[in-house]
Design a protein around this nucleic acid. Structure first.
Length: 817
RNA sequence: GCCGAAGUGGCGGAAUGGCAGACGCAACGGUCUCAAAAACCGUCGGGGGCAACCCCGUGCGGGUUCGAAUCCCGCCUUCGGCACCA
């Protein structure tokens, strides 16, 4: 590119102005956090970035939506806080270390530097004095502090359970990180392993996570996804008495269909159910046979386990139980279709009214007893499939003849009266497993002492920093390879202790970063109560829908837990959420995993402003759209035309001419529309409206006054979209102050109103004529005009006018028949 | 299977009960130029007609309405989420 000095033309050259304004903004400290007192505060962020290496157009779309929103809020006079940071822990850094021998920290910090440069080049209005990287000890020490708080409250606990294990990444995964039975990150099929891990008690908050949805200004699909994920079911816990050798003990099961209790013909336990091992001990002769089946199921991968056509298999156990409803003895089986993690890990089987139980009973010749019948029609001879629709209870003792919906509550009450069961709710949501056997994360601040057991690190000893003398083999937990890290002293007894070598799930980092943004350099506390009180909750959170059941649930849980600890006064972090639509490339999502296009080339060629404008113009921000760079040219052309218009040589001042009126009407209508569209985040149509305005201005003869009015309004309207361009043209119009705060054009309502309208004349719903008339002509007058219209008279031809529908300023429809 | 979103020109999209295709891209024709770029002007859903005009057209089939891309019922397709959750 040539220097500005070489040019003789006065055309729009973005490279000449973008660096200049970025430097100016920085020198003026324009984007510094404002005082939250005074006009309404507006805390706006986009979901922070994983430092994967390069920005791609998907990021550009996300951040441009947020920046346009933030800049518009400022233009409207609000006090905006708009920070950015990096979600810097995670596996890719560690994989780079394993594959290329680069320390994870080096890889991460160099990516952060690179991406920060790209973000600055795009001219986003971030307050870089309030940034954070989650891999800094100054950040993660507060993760550890928060972990200790959760531990004190009993919200963090260690337990042994069956967990998702990724053999490739050599770590456990949360349920949320298993996608179609495979590791969300590397795609390797996940297997179940019994392991001892750290959990957060998110299930304590299941009901609140659902109930609070009504307070949130969020896209409904995200709320629906969370509701599905949490999966609340209402039903009953029912106790089935066990026979010898477990007499006196109960087998408790969860069911949503207590109304089918009289139809139970067997019971099924998950192979991992604790009772199974006790049965093996009680029946040594059966032990090997049982264990063989348990092993067979356990070794299936998660993909095989969840396959749709997976056959249901099981074996009977040498024990039986008693149906509390009718005293009947029924067999107890173990089978692969019962999940240990849900409910009690065992079910009562009602083959007549449950598809799974039906298939299993058919396969193993177990009895099928029909106890719900359709309200009308004769009882069927033999069921061909499970009957799961509503009906009337049959062969159900005192409940026979009751509708099954009423029966649910009645059976529960009856069981409660006898102490054999109770109504309850059950959730699909599991506690959040937060420990990972990886290096590049926050060390869990826990010690294991032979004498004192599990001992938390003292708060004053934080941070527990990541050691650098570790070996990355891709197999063992790297922290365990640092003797200096592992060997520690017990703070309770002073004896030798071993450090926990697991690190935290990185979703821990993102669960509270929006609190830390306010005081990222404060080394005395995790966050400042007064600042949090002043700025939280977030007024706008912009990010992708893929976080619906992960980050967005975890962060809500965190906020609720901190609220209950008295650390926050609110319990929902994100008042308003906006999901940008995904950007596809070749039909699939643009992402760091393959098909991403970086913005650099187009930035070089057209500048940041044209790129920003284009990414908002292509589609409504919430819609998925296919990336096609061909259109950037159009945005650049538009800015070039505005440039030429605004930079015309004009004398300042003067009066409006009569001939200005039509164009001024367009201008004021445009200001009205752009304002409304920005309020509704309809950026694509706002830009289209400005283009239409430019088209109207192009051919018009304008007075100096009208030219100046239009030029200033255009600069102001473009400011949130094309900030460098707007600042430069604003300056060239003679303004000394940088165009940023409180500079939004007002529209004259009188001028914005249409004075002349084209009214469509329809005959039997088809357009037959158009009439240009003054706005506001009444329906009665329109009808009279229609009745005397030539086309109507010609169409009549002996027929009659049956009806006339007149909509002022829109149309008249004459129905002839 | 369950929950959700979406289907409109060659392309991205506009119009959410009232002129379908705004705005932009691409394409085509023209002006300017020695030439090119840039810029500007024009054409641009399909069919018919010399023409004024006419007919068809918003995934498919019905319906409501004076009038439906838009509302209702039933399908199809694509995408996202959940899925042996008892």
């Amino acid at each position: 590119m040539a220097d500005a000095a070489d040019r003789t033309d006065t055309r729009y050259h973005p490279v000449d102005i973008e660096g200049k304004w970025q430097a100016r903004w920085e020198a003026e400290n324009l984007f510094a956090r404002k005082d939250p007192a005074g006009p309404e505060k507006s805390y706006v962020i986009e979901m922070f970035a994983y430092p994967s290496g390069d920005l791609h157009w998907g990021h550009v779309r996300n951040y441009t939506i947020g920046d346009t929103f933030a800049r518009y809020q400022t233009a409207r006079g609000r006090n905006v806080f708009h920070p950015f940071g990096f979600d810097a822990f995670g596996l890719p850094a560690e994989n780079a270390a394993i594959k290329r021998g680069i320390p994870p920290a080096d890889w991460t910090y160099s990516n952060i530097a690179n991406m920060t440069g790209q973000l600055k080049r795009l001219g986003y209005s971030y307050d870089w004095d309030h940034t954070l990287n989650t891999c800094d000890p100054e950040y993660y020490r507060w993760n550890q502090w928060l972990f200790l708080k959760f531990f004190e409250r009993g919200l963090a606990y260690k337990k042994r359970s069956y967990l998702n294990w990724c053999p490739e990444d050599q770590t456990v995964l949360a349920n949320e990180q298993v996608v179609n039975g495979a590791c969300e990150r590397c795609g390797t099929p996940v297997v179940k392993r019994e392991l001892s891990q750290w959990f957060f008690k998110i299930t304590d908050y299941a009901d609140r996570l659902l109930d609070n949805h009504s307070q949130l200004d969020w896209p409904q699909p995200v709320i629906d996804m969370q509701r599905n994920w949490i999966g609340r079911s209402t039903g009953a816990l029912i106790d089935f008495a066990l026979d010898a050798p477990f007499e006196g003990e109960n087998l408790s099961v969860f069911t949503t269909r207590p109304d089918t209790l009289f139809g139970v013909t067997y019971m099924v336990l998950a192979p991992e159910h604790p009772l199974v091992q006790r049965v093996r001990e009680a029946f040594p002769a059966e032990s090997d046979r049982i264990q063989a089946f348990v092993d067979e199921v356990a070794h299936e991968s998660e993909i095989d386990r969840t396959a749709e056509d997976r056959p249901k298999v099981g074996i009977p156990l040498p024990i039986s139980a008693v149906n509390p409803a009718n005293g009947e003895r029924i067999p107890v089986w173990i089978a692969n279709y019962v999940l240990v993690e849900y409910g009690t890990g065992g079910v009562m089987a009602v083959p007549a009214h449950d598809e799974r139980d039906f298939a299993f009973a058919k396969a193993y010749g177990l009895p099928i007893r029909e106890v719900i019948r359709p309200a009308e029609g004769a009882p069927s001879a033999e069921l061909a499939e499970a009957y799961t629709a509503p009906g009337v209870m049959a062969d159900s003792g005192p409940f026979t003849g009751v509708s099954n919906e009423d029966g649910k509550g009645k059976v529960i009450a009856w069981l409660e009266g006898q102490g054999k069961g109770k109504g309850t709710v059950n959730f699909r949501l599991r506690d959040w497993c937060i420990s990972r056997q990886r290096y590049w994360g926050t060390p869990i601040p826990i010690l294991y002492c032979d004498r004192c057991g599990i001992v938390p690190v003292r708060a004053e000893d934080l941070p527990v920093t990541l050691p650098t003398d570790v070996a990355f083999t891709g197999k063992d937990n790297p922290l365990a390879t640092s003797a200096a890290f592992v060997n520690a002293t017990c703070p309770k007894c002073g004896g030798p202790a071993k450090r926990e070598t697991d690190t935290m799930d990185t979703f821990m980092d993102s669960s509270w970063y929006f609190l830390r943004y306010l005081n990222p350099k404060d080394d005395g506390k995790a966050f400042d109560a007064a600042d949090v009180e002043a700025w939280m909750p977030l007024d706008m959170y912009v990010g992708g829908r893929e976080h619906a059941t992960m980050h967005l649930i975890y962060a809500r849980f965190f906020t609720m837990a901190l609220h209950d600890m008295g650390l926050l006064t609110f319990d929902e972090p994100f008042r308003r959420l906006f999901n940008q639509g995904i950007l596809t490339q070749g039909g699939s999502k643009m992402s760091k995993r393959g098909n991403a296009t970086p913005p650099n080339q187009l930035l070089d060629k057209y500048g940041a402003d044209a790129c920003r404008l284009f990414i908002l113009f292509v589609a409504p921000p919430e819609e998925r759209t296919e990336w096609n760079e061909a259109g950037v040219e159009g945005s650049f052309r538009f800015l070039s035309r505005v440039w030429r218009f605004v930079t015309q040589e004009r004398r300042p001042g003067g009066a409006f001419a009569e001939t200005d009126e039509p164009v001024r009407r367009v201008l004021h209508r445009t200001i009205q529309k752009v304002t409304a569209d920005l309020d509704g985040l309809r950026y694509n149509t706002a830009i289209a409206a400005m283009m239409e305005l430019m088209n109207a201005l192009s051919g018009a003869e304008l007075s100096d006054a009208a030219h100046s009015e239009a030029a200033e309004a255009l600069c102001q309207m473009l400011a949130p979209f094309a900030p460098h361009f707007a600042c430069e043209t604003w300056e060239r119009l003679g303004h000394a102050e940088t165009l940023y705060r409180g500079a939004w054009p007002a529209f004259d309502a009188e001028l914005a109103r249409e004075n002349e309208v084209e009214v469509v004349l329809q005959i039997n719903g088809k357009v037959r004529d158009r009439m240009t008339i003054p706005a506001g002509v009444s329906a009665a007058d329109l009808e009279a005009m229609a009745r005397s219209n030539d086309k109507v008279l010609a169409a009549l031809n002996g027929k009659q006018i049956r009806k006339v529908i007149a909509v002022p300023d829109k149309l008249v429809n004459v129905v002839i028949g």
